[in-house]
Design a binder for these strands. Structure first.
Lengths: 162, 162
DNA sequence: GCAAATAAAGCGAGGGGTCACTCTTTTTAT
DNA sequence: ATAAAAAGAGTGACCCCTCGCTTTATTTGC
């Protein structure tokens, strides 16, 4: 799965052949099919463990640190590219859409918990926008390369402040 | 191109074959290759004319109307899905990345023009976040289906207000 | 302990099928 | 009569997956 994820992140799902995964993993063709019944199953497995990190609190430092984390992960493992692939595939595959919807809901729920009491009534709206904008920063990294997170930090804090 | 765009939007680039485009367009195989030298060229052509709309002003009504427009377009033509495909492909294709980067820059520049004078110094940051969040609403529509734009309107206004 | 037996894991060439693209022929327009 | 446009069957390459075989690990009987 590490091999598949690496290839998927740097070339996309469609441009990654089984032969690529075989080469990258060091395993053989037959060996892989002992653990996954199809290429699609590998895609789904990779998507399911696609853990997006989150800040520990909705403070300026925590949010800044969180975006820095997203940034370095994009640089080191092309994780942002992988996320872009996952969302595109989820847009046209109901099966994957369900997986991604579950993960998004979990992320929003986690953010809701961090919203300060003073803004409790809008917690749902805040979480929705917060998660969406975080994902969008990742998307921008995937397309435009390394990018200063400052505008996104500012916007996230503005969303929290209301 | 209408045929290609429609298919791309509902099935994705990789899951759309030339035969699909032939069927959808009503043309023949050979006729299409008189206007495009390859499938990739069709993809690029579709991406290049992928016009994202924008609000006319950064007021509550204009922003709300803008998101409504994005929403209805997603419902009627699956445009949100197409956008997801474009970004994913741009993430792994330098050629497409250049196209998309140009379009994103144009969108940000257009938003900068709308920023009120009182917030002029942060106009660049605001435009960056505004465009990113708009795209993210489109992404959410693509994955989660029809979705209330209210949280996104609120967040966009919060970003503008700072 | 040890060897036979059974199970699990790995291997890689090949089949079947799809798909992007070409090329010759036919139709339409000038 | 000539050129441009369209047609659509054919082709070769690619790619996912299967299957018989080999190697490694685990269990069992003595």
């Amino acid at each position: 799965m590490d091999a598949a994820r690496a290839r998927f992140a740097s070339h996309g799902f469609a441009h990654t052949s089984m032969a690529d995964i075989v080469t990258e993993s060091g395993l053989s063709n037959g060996a892989i099919y002992r653990y996954f019944t199809s290429k699609d199953e590998i895609v789904i497995a990779v998507c399911e463990q696609g853990t997006e990190a989150l800040p520990r609190a909705l403070t300026a430092e925590a949010v800044g640190g969180f975006l820095d984390h997203v940034r370095t992960r994009a640089r080191d493992t092309h994780h942002a590219r992988l996320v872009a692939q996952i969302y595109a595939e989820a847009a046209v595959s109901p099966l994957l859409a369900a997986v991604v919807q579950r993960q998004l809901a979990a992320l929003r729920a986690a953010i809701v918990e961090l919203v300060p009491d003073s803004r409790r009534p809008q917690a749902g709206q805040i979480a929705e926008a917060f998660v969406a904008l975080s994902i969008s920063y990742s998307l921008q990294l995937a397309i435009r390369g390394d990018l200063d997170p400052a505008p996104f930090t500012a916007a996230l804090l503005a969303i929290i402040k209301g």
